[in-house]
């Protein structure tokens, strides 16, 4: 039982970080009707911004984290929208999707050229201590990762549902033409969505890099898992992405512990196939009709 608790909590912790990245997929889908295939690299990159703050600018960790967050929001939010999305979007969704694939390669290779191919140590944000709960040794880092991630998701949901700006963002996502008629500044709301996505990706990066280490290729796995989490949970629902992320994190750990470590990487893909066959809109997603 203690092993189960330990593995379950650790899975929730990792899953909650996947969820942050997965929510980014759903946000951009709603704002720009596009899939950002560079999302994994969006999670990989902010860790390097923090390392630049620490090693090049000689800032303390907390200031480097703020520096990393600000740079991530500017580069992965503002610049991404202005330089990639806005020029490509009028040409349709497909060219934009291909552009995000190209961006993914550019970010990955650029990081490798700039910071090297080797993994870099990333400082721990939370204390590396443990506590015992019902015989299970629980890591404080796991608990804090879970608390911070869930706290941010709850905060984001409250922001979107309870504030005027959040409701305007939702209105823009649901029907931009009507929102504009009603006086919503659609362009600004779309920009906010991109900035929120960049901030979530940065947070995921700060939480996962102490475990994964900072490496140019981290985005490959993270992007894939987050994408699958978003589909499994429901691509058009934030709570769906959250459930998808947590589910993959927990099931991955339980499979590796109790079934097989060799085939653990196949689990998310098997889940994806099952969900697409059984419930194409995802566990919590809603069906969307499209006219051709």
């Amino acid at each position: 039982m203690s092993q189960f608790l330990q593995v379950f909590l650790s899975g929730l912790s990792t899953g909650s970080i996947y969820a942050l990245a997965a929510i980014g997929f759903t946000l951009l889908w709603q704002a720009a009707q596009t899939v950002n295939f560079a999302q994994g690299e969006f999670v990989m990159l902010p860790a390097f911004f923090v390392l630049i703050g620490i090693h090049w600018l000689h800032l303390p960790l907390w200031l480097s984290l703020i520096f990393g967050l600000i740079v991530a929001v500017i580069v992965l939010g503002l610049l991404f929208k202005k330089v990639v999305v806005e020029p490509m979007l009028p040409n349709g969704g497909l060219p934009l999707i291909i552009a995000t694939m190209a961006l993914s390669i550019l970010l990955k290779e650029g990081t490798k050229q700039f910071y090297g191919a080797e993994a870099q140590p990333f400082p721990n944000i939370f204390p590396q201590t443990t506590m015992t709960l019902d015989g299970a040794v629980i890591s404080v880092q796991d608990i804090m990762n879970l608390v911070v991630s869930l706290g941010v998701v709850v905060g984001l949901t409250l922001f979107l549902n309870r504030t005027r700006t959040g409701r305007c963002m939702q209105a823009t996502a649901q029907n931009p033409e009507v929102a504009e008629i009603l006086g919503v500044n659609v362009k600004r709301m779309v920009l906010y969505t991109f900035l929120v996505n960049a901030a979530l990706a940065a947070l995921a990066s700060f939480l996962i890099s102490p475990i994964y280490l900072a490496k140019f290729s981290n985005g490959e796995t993270l992007g894939l898992v987050a994408f699958i989490a978003a589909i499994v949970g429901g691509f058009n629902q934030i709570r769906g992405a959250l459930v998808g992320g947590l589910l993959i994190g927990v099931l991955d750990n339980l499979t590796a512990t109790y079934v097989t470590t060799e085939y653990r990487a196949a689990l998310p893909l098997v889940m994806l196939i099952v969900i697409i066959l059984w419930r194409p809109q995802g566990l919590l997603g809603t069906s969307e009709g499209r006219q051709v």
Binding site: Q3, S10, Y212, D252, N253, A256, T257, T261
Partner: peptide
């Protein structure tokens, strides 16, 4: 006897298995 993949990032299940 715990095999892992090259490039594996998450070792929580591996360590848990060994620990128990």
């Amino acid at each position: 006897d715990v095999p892992s993949e090259q490039g594996q990032a998450d070792f929580s299940a591996d360590v848990s298995k060994i620990k128990n």
